[in-house]
Amino acid sequence: MSLTSLSSLFAQKSWANNELFSALAEVDAQAHPQVVHMATRMLNHIYVVDRIFRAHLLGEPHGYSATNTEATPELGALQFEVAETDGWYEAYVAQLSEAQLAERIHFRFTDGDGGTMSREEMLTHIVVHGFYHRGNVGQMLKSIEVAPPRDLYTKFLHLREPERRG
């Protein structure tokens, strides 16, 4: 995948995360406590995995023993942390070279098993993982008759560059 494509996908990830957090914030948590809790847990899982792979990319310890935390964060605080991490990924991809993208990195999964992936594979995993689980949250919202945001790459591209619609 090209650096241009990765950059665009990470910008879309930031946009889609913000859209989904905004939609979830509008849900009446007292009327739908289980759905809000489960959706927040799922969004926290995405965040934790993003942070784990950020540490792998930097060659630093991540401090997580699982792919989610025991405590469920407050939605607004999580949205802030996710936005900060999304910004980091956008900046990170913007400064990479093709050679760095191909570099293979050895790391440990939270279960202790070792793994090796290229930077490109790690970054692709982060994008795909987020798409998958945002879709899970979208289904949770549908279960309480709330229309989830349309998390579409095509929509993002045309909002960002409206001249593409011509």
Rank of each mutant, 00 (worst) to 15 (best):
E26R: 15
N17P: 02
T4V: 09
Q100P: 02
E60Y: 09
H56Y: 14
R51Q: 15
R119G: 05
L20S: 02
W88E: 00
A25H: 15
V35G: 02
Q30L: 07
A55L: 05
M122C: 12
V127S: 06
H129S: 10
L78I: 05
E81T: 01
L101E: 01
P162R: 12
F107N: 04
L101P: 00
N18Q: 14
G63H: 04
Y89M: 01
T154V: 10
D50K: 11
H62F: 07
E60V: 01
F131L: 12
N68D: 13
H106V: 02
K155F: 12
E70L: 07
S14E: 13
T110D: 11
P33I: 02
E90C: 11
S5E: 10
R134K: 01
G135R: 00
V93N: 04
Q79W: 04
S118E: 10
T69W: 03
R165M: 13
S5H: 14
S22T: 14
G130W: 09
K13Q: 13
Y47L: 11
V36G: 04
R104D: 11
E163L: 08
E19P: 00
V137A: 03
G112E: 07
L58A: 13
V35A: 09
T69I: 06
L20Y: 05
A91C: 07
L24E: 06
N17T: 05
E19A: 10
L141I: 03
Q12I: 05
N68L: 12
H106G: 08
M122F: 12
R108H: 14
H37G: 10
N136H: 14
A16Q: 04
A147Y: 03
N18G: 11
G87R: 11
I126R: 05
L157K: 10
F131A: 14
E60R: 09
H32Q: 07
E70A: 07
G112Y: 10
E103N: 08
R165V: 15
N136P: 02
G135S: 04
R104F: 10
P73M: 08
